[in-house]
C-alpha cells in the first residue's frame, strides 16, 4: 500500500448550547482549529472563506461549516491535483430538513421553497466544495451512522493507494433541539444540544515539509462484545502494525467537547493531530457497537 500522509486539517466547532451539567462555564462554544493554530472567534469570518454571498446566504449552518472546513484544507492546493472529495455524515443536515418539513406543514404541502430541500441532501457539502474549487474528480458521501467517517477515510486511503495525489476527507454533523430531545429518549444524545461540528483532513501520497502525520489504517468492527474481546481485537490491530496499545497515544471519541456523536472521529482526529505525537490511535466505541481504530504516526 502506498504511503498516505495528512498534509492539512481543519476543524470548526460552533455550539449554541450544552445539556451537560458539568459544563457550566459557557452556554456557547466556538473553535476553529486549522493546521495546528486556533483561529480566534472574532477574526473568523465565513465571508473570507466562502466569498460568494448568494451561495453563502442559502447555506444552512452545517453546510457553511463543512464547506468552510473543506475549503480551508484545500487552500493553496491546485484543483487538478485533487483526486477525490470524500465526506461523511451520520444524520445529515437536520436544520434544513426541519425547515423544509415545517414549511410543508405551514404551507399545506404546496408552494414550497426548494432551497432547504436541496441543501438537506447528504452530498451538499462535497458538491459545494467541488463547484467552488472546480474539482471534477471522484465525489462521494458516506452516511453509515457511527462508521460514516471511518468509511470515508478508508475510501480516501484507497484512492491514494490507486494513484490519487491528494484527497480531501471529512466528517460533519449537527444537532438541533428536536433531534437532541429524541436522542435523549433513545439514550444516545451527545452533550451538545444545538450546533455543528465539521472536521476535514487533506490526504496526500507526497510527504512535504508541512506533513502532520502518516495515516496507517482504519479498522472497524460492529457489534456488542465484551471489553476483554475488544481489547484483544485492538491489541491484534496494533501488533499487526508493529506497535502496542500501551506505548501508543490514545484519543477516545467521548473525550471531545461535544461528547460522542456519529462523526466524532473526524473531530477527534483533528484534535489528535494538534496534541498528539508519535504512534497514535483514535479509538471509537460509538453506542457500544460501532468500534473503530484509526492508527497514525504524528510527525
Amino acid at each position: 500500500m502506498r504511503h498516505c500522509y495528512i498534509n492539512g486539517y481543519a476543524l470548526i466547532i460552533s455550539v449554541d448550547g450544552f445539556d451537560s451539567v458539568d459544563r457550566d462555564d459557557s452556554k456557547a462554544f466556538f473553535d476553529c482549529l486549522y493546521n495546528g493554530s486556533h483561529v480566534p472567534r472574532d477574526s473568523f469570518d465565513y465571508k473570507k472563506i466562502i466569498s460568494d454571498g448568494n451561495l453563502r446566504r442559502r447555506m444552512g449552518p452545517l453546510v457553511k461549516s463543512g464547506v468552510a472546513a473543506g475549503l480551508l484544507c484545500l487552500d493553496g492546493v491546485p484543483s487538478d491535483s485533487v483526486g477525490g472529495i470524500v465526506t461523511a455524515t451520520g444524520l445529515g443536515f437536520l436544520s434544513d430538513t426541519e425547515r423544509f418539513m415545517n414549511d410543508m406543514i405551514d404551507r399545506n404541502e404546496s408552494m414550497l421553497n426548494p432551497s432547504p430541500f436541496m441543501q438537506s441532501t447528504f452530498n451538499t457539502v462535497g458538491s459545494h466544495i467541488a463547484m467552488i474549487r472546480g474539482i471534477h474528480s471522484y465525489n462521494m458521501t458516506y452516511v453509515h451512522r457511527g462508521f460514516s467517517f471511518e468509511s470515508a477515510l478508508s475510501d480516501a486511503m484507497m484512492l491514494i493507494d490507486e494513484g490519487a495525489e491528494t484527497v480531501l476527507a471529512g466528517g460533519f454533523d449537527e444537532m438541533t433541539f428536536p433531534v437532541h430531545k429524541l436522542l435523549v429518549r433513545l439514550g444516545s444524545a451527545p452533550k451538545f444540544q444545538n450546533g455543528e461540528i465539521s472536521g476535514f483532513v487533506l490526504l496526500s501520497s507526497i510527504r512535504t515539509g508541512n506533513t502532520f502525520a502518516e495515516l496507517h489504517c482504519v479498522k472497524t468492527r460492529y457489534g456488542h462484545f465484551s471489553e476483554e474481546n475488544l481489547e484483544k481485537w485492538r491489541s491484534d490491530v496494533a501488533l499487526s502494525y508493529g506497535t502496542d496499545l500501551e506505548s501508543a497515544g490514545i484519543f477516545d471519541c467521548d473525550s471531545s467537547v461535544s461528547g460522542p456523536y456519529m462523526t466524532d472521529s473526524a473531530s477527534v482526529l483533528c484534535n489528535a493531530l494538534e496534541k498528539g505525537s508519535g504512534k497514535t490511535f483514535i479509538r471509537n466505541d460509538f453506542c457500544g457497537k460501532n468500534h473503530s481504530l484509526i492508527l497514525l504516526d504524528i510527525l
Binding site: N54, D106, R107, M111, L112, P114, S115
Partner: peptide, 17 residues
C-alpha cells in the same frame, strides 16, 4: 440586491403567505 431565479420563487411564496 443581485437576486436570482431561486429568490424569485421565494418572493412569490412571500406574497402568497
Amino acid at each position: 440586491l443581485g437576486l436570482d431565479s431561486i429568490d424569485a420563487l421565494e418572493i412569490i411564496l412571500l406574497l402568497d403567505k
